[in-house]
């Protein structure tokens, strides 16, 4: 695992439209570009924010990743996924 590779991938997705476009249009090349391991690639491509948070990556980057790249760019959906509970997300 390369902590910094994932950190850079998350940062670029947050701030660089080209990274978001690459992820959307060619996820295989995206994974190669950032030299992600199989587990890291799976977490990112499946938007497993819980796994990313548990892995210790900066929560601002993880949240920003969800808010820029997910289908439902809402705080509620992010928290639901993070907490693995839809009930908690309804509080927000």
């Amino acid at each position: 695992m390369s902590y910094e590779s994932v950190e850079k991938a998350l940062y670029d997705l947050n701030v660089d439209r080209r990274a978001r476009t690459l992820l959307a249009e060619d996820p295989v090349q995206f994974v190669e570009r950032y030299r992600l391991t199989e587990d890291e690639a799976e977490a990112m491509l499946e938007m497993d924010v819980r796994k990313l948070a548990d892995g210790g990556w900066n929560p601002m980057l993880v949240w920003g990743y969800w808010m820029t790249c997910s289908q439902d760019r809402s705080v509620g959906s992010y928290l639901a996924r993070l907490r693995q509970s839809s009930a908690a997300a309804e509080e927000l």
Partner: peptide, 8 residues
């Protein structure tokens, strides 16, 4: 709490 499960 920013981006964590305690956000809010």
């Amino acid at each position: 709490w920013v981006g964590t499960a305690d956000m809010g």
